[in-house]
Structure formats: C-alpha cells, structure tokens
Design a protein around this nucleic acid. Sequence first.
RNA 1: UCCGGGGUAGCUCAAUUGGCAGAGCGCCGGACUGUUAAUCCGUAGGUUGUGAGUUCGAGUCUCACCCCCGGAGCCA
Length: 485
Amino acid sequence: MYGLAFRPSIVAATTKGHEALMKRELIKHVLESEDFGATVTVAGWVRTRRDSKGGFSFLELNDGSSFDGLQVIAEGSLPNYESEVQRLHIGAAVTATGELVESPGAGQRVELRALELMVHGLADPEDYPLQKKRISYERLRELAHLRPRTNTFGAVARVRNALAASTHRFFQERDFLYLHTPIITGSDAEGAGDMFRVTTLDPAVPPRTDQNDVDYAQDFFGRPTFLTVSGQLEAEAYASALSNVYTFGPTFRSENSNTRRHLAEFWMIEPEMAFADNGDNADLAEEYLRYLFRRLLDEHSRDLEFFNQWVDQGLLERLSSIADHDFERITYGEAVEVLGNAETDFEFPVNWGNDLQSEHERYLTETVFGRPVIVTDYPFDIKAFYMRRNEDGKTVAALDVLLPGVGEIIGGSQREERFDVLLESIGEKGLDVADYWWYLDLRRFGSVPHAGFGLGFERLVQFATGMQNIRDVIAFPRTPNNAEF
RNA sequence: UCCGGGGUAGCUCAAUUGGCAGAGCGCCGGACUGUUAAUCCGUAGGUUGUGAGUUCGAGUCUCACCCCCGGAGCCA
C-alpha cells in the first residue's frame, strides 16, 4: 500500500545510497583502525547528538557490531546540516562517509569527520520511547522490538550469540554430532513438565468419539501431539548409533511459572554420550561450562566489563574463578548431611528422600562452597524413570549442576540401559509401557551405557551477563500472559 | 497456582489524618568556542490500571477485575 511510486524522493535516496551501503564498514572494525586519513563509510543508529558551541555537532553512531559507538563529527558546512543533521535524535538511522581521524577530544581514540551524511530514517523524539537515560527493564520488556538498540540488550545479544557459537565449537571440537530433534512430538509422557498441545482441530467444535471424548484420530497427525519438552529420548536413539550427539533447540513448557528463572519457550542444549557413565557426564558438564566462560572472557571483555560495572559488580571475578577452578562434587546423601549440620534455619526441613529446595541449593553453592556444585546420586523416588539405578537400589545416577545466583543450570543422568530394570522403573512410575516401545527397543538391540544432560541456555546467558531476569536474556520472551511481538 | 509488593506526566518517582496532583529526566525554545549521561535559564506536558461503591469531597478508604515485579512450587 505504501507504493514507492508515490514517493520519488525515497527512491532517489535509496538508489543513491546503494553504493555507499555496499562498502560500508562495521564500526567494530573502524574503532580498531589505524588508517588515519582514509575515507570510511559507516552506517548505524544515532545514540546521541551533542551540538558544539562552534556550530557543528557530535553524533554517536552505533551499529550493534560492538559495544562502543563511533563519534561522527558533522560540520555546520554539510549541505543538509540545518535541514537534517539538526533534526537527528536518538534512534535515527544514518550513513556517514568521511575522513577517519585521531580524535582531539578525550574519551575516544578515533572519530569520523563526515563529508557526507545521509539520513535514512528520522526518529521523532516526541514519540520514540528510548531516551538517553536509564530505562527500567520492565519498561523495556514492553518495548522488546526496540530494546536491542540499548547498551544492555545489545550486549546481551552479543554475549548470547558468543555462547551459542562457543557451544557448537566446543562440541564440534570433540566430535559430537549436532542433531535436530523434532519440535512436534507424539509422546505426551516425556515426564519433564506440562506440554503445549499441537492441533488443527477446531477448538470450538472438535470431532467427538462415541464416548464424547475429543477424537484425535481426526487430528492432523492422527493422534495427540505436543510441543517438545526435551529432545533427550530422540537424542538417545542417535547416540545409540553415532556415539556422541548434542541438540540445541527450542523447548516448550506450559507450566504457569512466574519466576525470573522460567520461560514457556526456552532453548536447551542436550548432549548425549554413548559408552559413558555419570562420571563422564559430570566431566563433560564441567569442561563445557568452563570452556564457555574462558572463551567469553577472552573474546567479549568489553561487553562483560559493561555488565560488571552496571549490572553485577562481581561478574568478572566470578566468571574467571569458575573458568580457573574445579567444580565441587558431592552426592545427594552428602549434601543432605551438610545441610543437616548447617547453622542456618531453613524454611523446609532437610530429610533424605526429599528433593533439595531452592534455598538448600543456594546454600550449598553460595554459602558452603562458593562455587559451582555438581550434586549426584539422587533418590530414585524423586527422579525420572529413565535414570540409571545405582547398586544400592535407592538412588539413581543423576546429576544437577548448581551455579551461584541462578541455581540449577544443568540436570542430567546416566540412562538406564538395562531392559528389565527400565521396564520395572516405567511400571513403578505408573507410566504406560506401550508409549515407550521404541525407547525400550534401544535396550533390546545393542544397548550400551550412556549418559547426557540438559542445559538451560537462557540460564547460562543470565549467569554470564549477571542479568537478574531470564526475560531479559532472550529476544522476545514467552511467559504466562505474554506472547506479544 | 500460592504469598508479598506495586500501577500517578513520554520515562523514574513524590503527594502528611480523605482537602488546590508535584519534582527530576527527556522533548521544545534560549544561552554557552571539541562535546562525552554536557551544563545553565525557560515553556509545554495529567481520564492517578479498569469498573463499581462510601463520602460534602477519593491518588488516598471498601469490593471486584486486569496487568507488572519479587519470593515459593514446577524445572532448565
């Protein structure tokens, strides 16, 4: 409806800008350049305009390629200085071509003396919601489409990207195969939480069976289907053929969780190793986390420095410490003992057989050890059916990795590879054996000891940035009552 | 879902026992020889989350609902 034919000036500007856009350089590279005197073209969004007393203006331009922006000097002699430059405010998009010079002012090493400044889109300061001052995270959640233009969310996006890239690199370096497991699953019994139903039936008048139940035989897949809560079971099938695999994909849970640690849609990384036990599992988890933080410290120090200064003052020290030191490893039984002897009064009592509460996990990782803790060998009764039974018959070879501040970031286990024992566990958990026919097949044919875990990617980003709320480390968070954007 | 806190100008927040709805920032105008969250002066800016109710009078008290935040549970 907005035909360009009605606005010839836009067509001209776009055509004219094309050549300049082709050779524009990312600001991150310009900031490191030593090539003074060179003609350089950059493009980005204005963060601030400061008018000098001398009849020219400073523009701070950011294109997201780095935390820091480039200072652009717009002389009063520019032909569009009064008509356009003076109307630039935070949020406006421009391309600037000029001479790269050493900055005479303090605060930046280089700056661009603009010879030409093209305005792509203005941002009316009366309407543009972002301001040159701190805006609350709560407010920015309502502006999820604009918040990547802020310092904080630009940095979050870069750190998140870096952690994703490092994840692939870590597993690829170790010959793990990246596996895409299905988003839509036919299994409603994965046991990892409430699921979103996937259906094409008309919710107002679904087809009914003779018993007046909804007739899912007439649904798209001819059976009930859901969004996945875990790719683990499928990953086990591929680990049982390709040795080591990992998934990295979206995961969905329809629990009515309202905390700063939960999302209805989040991303999970799930490695699965054949010919491995729970000790190998713990080794992998620790090596992986320490690898991520080491690389992040080495390659994204500018963003981390920002978080360390404005978001979480202990961040750099904590990340370095974790990268450099072993994790603590204790069994559930030992944890119960430690907690039982604690001076602290817990709201919930600590008894063998009860799951550890958030306050207990926090006490262990923050107060007792002051570093990441891997807790293993939980009671069978509080863990999932697929976890491998230990010799004592009471515990399973499970594993949780607890991080200070965010709590449980990894949950995993050695899987029950013994057909008879698995069958028994399915029965004891009150599950229907028929639902697990193919999962049981993996134990009937060439079964091997194997283990794996799931890591909540957003919790990882939380920990790496110090961001308190998980809704602020994913681009467009989905939580109960919130699916805007 | 449960417990607690909150919703007032574009944003962040004040408003005494129920008694004229305010400030800072931002914007706009002006001043100032290279600024860095610039500074200084000035203008404009309001259906107090929604709907009922009590009262001479409600931002303030009562009821219902909506939404947000924190904690808990579930979990990653």
